[in-house]
Design a protein around this nucleic acid. Structure first.
Length: 400
DNA sequence: AAATACACCAACCGCACTTCG
DNA sequence: ACGAAGTGCGGTTGGTGTATT
């Protein structure tokens, strides 16, 4: 079908926004909400197309946007998620509260990608550039399985993000009806991407992350002489951490609390900070508490492998996502039967061919570089960390 | 000081997907 | 079921600031 242009090109302004335009847009949205983006420019008295207004709002004017340089933790999160999701910036953004997909994308393209390349790591595959030379059956299998897992996980993440967004929108609608003076801040957050909890301080098992932590390129991150430097800023989100105890993750709105999350915290010293999502109801929800910095600073401390967490996680997946989504998809029967869960479990424990030792031993026996073997040896931890990362996401909304 | 190269990032473009009548 | 409208998303561009020669 033909596709109409998003707006008439004639007479519409393009290019950088002026403060006046920003003010108009802000004022209008604050008062009326954005409603239909196409109709907004006219109503707001802007000579812009709706698309431009939407972009300006979502990428710049939204009051819940965190600007400024990315913290080390955020960088790690981006790298990990990019390894998992590829260039799916919106999905990645759901795990980086207050960061827009555009900002993440820009940061990746201008900073992270280059750094990886400089290190000889392919920013696309997240493997050492000459890794292809090491390819063999075992590794191929491993890679294939991991890739397979990633695809499914990726799909799940997308669904999560969407549902959380919807959930937030819904709760926000209620809040708007209540109407408080702080509505603006919360409204904007509700009308945008789902806010995700900060990722767990995952162990840097990927080569990239190891290098990130230990290598010299930290010097390129301003002011970070050490990993846990004071510069390590906590990713922020609309969260509330309990003051002294690791917060407990609750579902959006505090309605659905998946027990699996609690288990990840069996070891308080090392475990990720558990996150309590503040429900959209109540005024406190509009407060953004940026705490938990201490927890992040300790990210380098070892995190126990999330064996128990993995179990819970995969159990949950079998009971929910796998069951409800995958099983209805006939084209993926093979996966459904074996189950993503089983793939995960195999990868982490059972299947020798998928285990780190299996891959590393058979493929790097010729004395491949340590970094190469490490990459595969650390697959378990790597995926555990990612899964934990995912597990800490607001995936346990009532929808699931 | 001027010219050039480079880095950064806001904004645009257009395709894909979803929603709605 | 269909098509148009609306929106989301990722890739790319172009303007601006900074560093280097």
């Amino acid at each position: 079908m033909g596709r109409s242009p998003c707006c008439d090109k004639v007479g519409l302004k393009k290019g950088p926004w002026t403060p006046e335009e920003d003010q108009k847009l802000l004022a209008y949205i604050e008062e009326h909400g954005h409603g239909s983006w196409r109709a907004l420019p006219t109503k707001a008295g802007l000579q812009r197309c709706g698309k431009s207004c939407r972009l300006r709002w979502t990428n710049y004017l939204r009051p819940d946007i965190k600007r400024g340089k990315f913290s080390l933790q955020e960088e790690q999160t981006i790298i990990q998620l990019h390894a998992l999701l590829g260039n799916r910036w919106s999905a990645i953004a759901t795990h980086l509260p207050k960061r827009t997909d555009n900002e993440i994308k820009n940061y990746w393209n201008t900073h992270l990608k280059k750094r990886l390349t400089k290190m000889g790591i392919d920013p696309v595959t997240h493997k050492p550039k000459n890794d292809a030379l090491l390819s063999s059956d075992g590794q191929s299998k491993t890679a294939a399985n991991l890739s397979h897992m990633a695809q499914w996980e990726s799909a799940r993440l997308e669904a999560e993000a969407r549902l959380v967004r919807e959930s937030k929108l819904r709760s926000h609608s209620l809040q708007q009806q209540i109407g408080t003076s702080s509505t603006f801040a919360s409204s904007s957050s509700a009308s945008n991407k789902a806010e995700a909890p900060p990722p767990p301080p995952s162990r840097s098992s990927l080569d990239v992350l190891k290098a990130w932590n230990n290598g010299g390129w930290l010097k390129s991150s301003e002011g970070s002489g050490a990993i846990a430097s004071t510069d390590l800023e906590s990713p922020t989100s609309t969260l509330s951490f309990s003051e002294n105890a690791p917060p407990i993750m609750n579902g959006i709105g505090g309605e659905n609390n998946n027990n699996s999350n609690n288990n990840n915290n069996s070891n308080n010293d090392n475990a990720m900070p558990m996150i309590e999502f503040v429900g959209s109801s109540g005024n406190s929800s509009s407060l953004v508490k940026e705490e938990g910095e201490q927890e992040w600073k300790g990210y380098d401390s070892s995190i126990t492998t999330f064996s128990s967490g993995m179990h819970e996680f995969t159990m949950a997946m079998e009971g929910t996502w796998v069951h409800e989504t995958l099983r209805t998809n006939g084209s993926h029967d093979d996966i459904v039967e074996e189950g993503f869960t089983n793939l995960l479990l195999k990868t982490n424990s059972e299947d020798p061919s998928l285990s780190s030792e299996g891959g590393g031993e058979s493929n790097n026996g010729d004395g491949g570089s340590n970094s190469h073997s490490d990459f595969y040896e650390d697959n378990n931890n790597y995926w555990n960390s990612i899964l934990n990362l995912v597990n800490s996401s607001p995936s346990h909304s009532p929808m699931f």
